[in-house]
Amino acid sequence: MNTNSSMAALGASVGARPLMGRAYEGDPTRLPAESFGLAPVVPPKRNRTAPWDYDREAYKGRNMVERVFNRMKHYRQAATRHDRLDETFLANLQLIPIAIYLKNTAKNLTSVNTP
Rank of each mutant, 00 (worst) to 15 (best):
M1T: 09
M1P: 08
M1H: 13
T3P: 03
T3W: 09
T3C: 07
S5R: 09
S5N: 14
S6I: 09
S6P: 01
S6D: 08
M7L: 15
A8G: 01
A8C: 10
A9L: 10
L10W: 11
L10Y: 12
G11I: 00
G11Y: 01
G11C: 04
S13P: 01
S13W: 09
V14S: 07
V14Y: 06
G15N: 08
P18K: 04
P18Y: 03
L19C: 05
L19S: 01
M20K: 09
M20Q: 05
G21K: 10
R22P: 02
A23C: 12
Y24Q: 08
G26H: 07
G26D: 15
P28S: 10
P28V: 11
P28F: 04
T29G: 03
R30V: 13
L31A: 14
P32V: 02
E34L: 11
E34C: 08
E34K: 02
F36M: 08
G37P: 01
A39C: 07
P40Y: 00
V41T: 01
P43F: 00
P44I: 05
R46Q: 10
N47W: 10
T49A: 14
A50S: 13
A50M: 12
P51M: 05
P51V: 08
P51E: 02
W52C: 06
W52L: 04
D53I: 14
D53M: 12
Y54Q: 03
Y54C: 03
Y54R: 00
Y54M: 04
Y54F: 15
D55A: 02
D55P: 01
D55G: 03
E57F: 07
E57W: 06
A58E: 14
Y59K: 01
Y59G: 00
K60M: 06
K60D: 02
K60L: 10
G61D: 11
R62H: 08
R62F: 06
V65A: 08
E66H: 02
R67A: 09
V68E: 07
V68S: 05
F69G: 03
N70T: 12
R71H: 09
M72R: 00
K73S: 10
K73H: 11
K73C: 09
Y75G: 00
R76P: 01
R76Y: 08
Q77G: 11
R84F: 08
R84Y: 11
R84G: 13
D86C: 11
E87P: 04
T88N: 07
T88S: 13
F89S: 03
L90H: 01
N92L: 09
N92S: 06
N92T: 06
L93I: 05
Q94I: 01
Q94N: 14
I96Q: 00
P97F: 04
P97V: 02
A99N: 12
A99I: 04
I100P: 00
Y101M: 13
Y101S: 08
Y101N: 13
Y101W: 14
K103I: 05
K103G: 09
T105L: 15
A106P: 00
A106L: 14
K107A: 15
K107R: 11
K107E: 15
N108W: 07
N108C: 05
L109C: 06
T110W: 09
T110Q: 06
N113P: 02
T114D: 04
P115W: 04
P115G: 07
